[in-house]
Amino acid sequence: MAEPRSWRDGAVRLTTLPLIAIFGAFFLVPLVMTAVLSFQGTQYYRLVWTWDLKIWRDVFSQWHYWSIMLRTLSMACICTALCILIALPVAYALVTRLKDWADHVTLLIVFAFLTDAVLKTFGWVLFLDRSGVLNGMLEGLGFGKAALDVLFSPFATMIGMVYSLLPYAIFTIALSMARIDRDLVLAAYDSGASRWRTLREVTLPLARPGIVAGAVLVFVLSLGVFLEPRVMGGGTSPMAAELIRQSFETRVNWPLGAALTLVVIVIGALSLALFGGLALGAGRRARA
């Protein structure tokens, strides 16, 4: 279907050059600039062109930054695990059991996904608050006042993160499960495999590219969450994005902000490269 063409072809130029110009000028150039900026310094809230490694030494030597980075990483790992665990049965049910309803369910998830994130986190605050809907209902059931006081804790942050990233996991896994050849599953049944064994030895391995892709996507995006720790976590346990925002806005230390941004980007890129390769390899092996 894809026809080989050269760069001299007018249509190829017409379709690629505008995109290259925009993504080059407003995506690549800013990335390079961030890298350059991280080697400069500040004095009296002003940028000084020093070209040294001072900021990088600070970033790696101060426990404060390490602790926030480690918290970000562990929150991202927990969030990824939860999203995959929840998404697996949901995607499986959508693809194999609920064929007539799958479209409507997908539509409902897409609508929730596309709704303004600020409003959604605010909705969670109203629900989880000490005097919110959840505690009001629990009180009605006889559990006493403010039975579940979870708002403004890392637990609430985690609810918010899973909430906003779960659709990515559901859609990538459902997509890879929908492409599994139904005959392979039926063949496994015919040769006497139990349902559990078929799931474990046929369906899950074949869906692995989707599972890995979903996990990487959730992990990388969860490194940058800001609204959830701020609004639902109450700012009590800041994560990397909050630290970056503070170094730009409150401390007006742009080189520091640039260096911290790069740390997160590099962690994300490394996990993408690592697991992306894994997903591709798994896909190739599954097809072979």
Binding site: A2, R5, S6, L19, T34, L221, G224, I244
Partner: peptide, 28 residues
Amino acid sequence: RWRFRCQRAFQVLTFAPLLFPQLLLGVV
């Protein structure tokens, strides 16, 4: 529709922003 030289690089460039945490994309 087509295959051309460096198409992979073009695809990576035009897909990468989707893999970025939005706040970092904004900050950068």
